[in-house]
């Protein structure tokens, strides 16, 4: 199992992500954005979190024109599995690989804390180790995590089971930290091979650090 992790100037979660996948037994490679190809043996491509290109213009807006992104798009369109975490999610929406967009948090504050999430759809490789309704505790750390999609787009997300996770409280009641439409924390594409979420499962791998709920999420990718 080979996990390739993208690195842009300003990415800062690539080594956490590498550590997380290594701890689950995966082979990993960090891929600099100048690469024009995705390594052939890649089973999962991760667009890691951080602040690619300093978030200039909009989060993820410049990264989408990096040389590697054409290869990523080709890889995704041919069925390759892609996971975007935080800034990676922003990059994937900017690149048009995932629907919607991420706006400035409604409070205008940068949020960095643990947050509970509810599993909405587990009929995909990412969350199949969890059950619908399960509640996980995963850190969030973002300024632009306010998910927006128009009404028609939202309807489509529901119809195709594309909503992965929603923000909630400990009991699973709706709790929205950033103003996201319907408290959406993560979505996938229609084909269910491209996934994006604002929370950081790679930072929830050890009980000692507050939660290990990220293990079950990332493990989903490692069984194929």
């Amino acid at each position: 199992m080979k996990v390739t992790i993208l690195q842009f100037p300003g990415t800062n979660c690539e080594y956490d992500t590498q550590h997380a996948f290594k701890s689950l037994g995966a082979n990993t490679e960090i891929l600099w954005h100048k690469s024009e190809v995705v390594p052939k043996d890649t089973d999962l491509l991760v667009v890691a979190g951080g602040f690619s290109y300093g978030d200039y213009l909009r989060s993820g807006a410049i990264a989408k024109f990096s040389p590697v992104m054409q290869a990523v798009t080709k890889y995704a369109k041919s069925g390759g599995k892609v996971l975007g975490i935080c800034n990676g999610f922003q990059v994937l929406t900017e690149a048009g690989l995932l629907p919607g967009a991420l706006k400035r948090n409604e409070s205008l504050h940068f949020l960095s804390k643990h947050h509970h999430l509810k599993v909405v759809n587990n009929d995909n490789i990412f969350l199949e180790k969890l059950h619908n309704g399960d509640i996980v505790n995963i850190p969030i750390a973002h300024h632009d995590g306010n998910y927006y999609i128009d009404e028609d787009g939202l309807k489509e997300l529901y119809e195709n089971n594309q909503i992965l996770l929603k923000y909630c409280d400990e009991e699973g009641n709706d709790k929205n930290p950033n103003g996201s439409v319907d408290s959406i924390a993560g979505v996938c594409n229609k084909e269910k091979n491209v996934f994006g979420l604002m929370p950081h499962p790679e930072r929830a791998m050890e009980k000692l650090l507050g939660s290990n709920d990220g293990i079950k999420m990332l493990q989903g990718f490692l069984q194929a």
């Binding site: 909009r58 929406t93 967009a101």
Partner: peptide
């Protein structure tokens, strides 16, 4: 292509 994100 770049200057605006026409989704929002």
């Amino acid at each position: 292509d770049l200057l605006a994100n026409t989704v929002i």
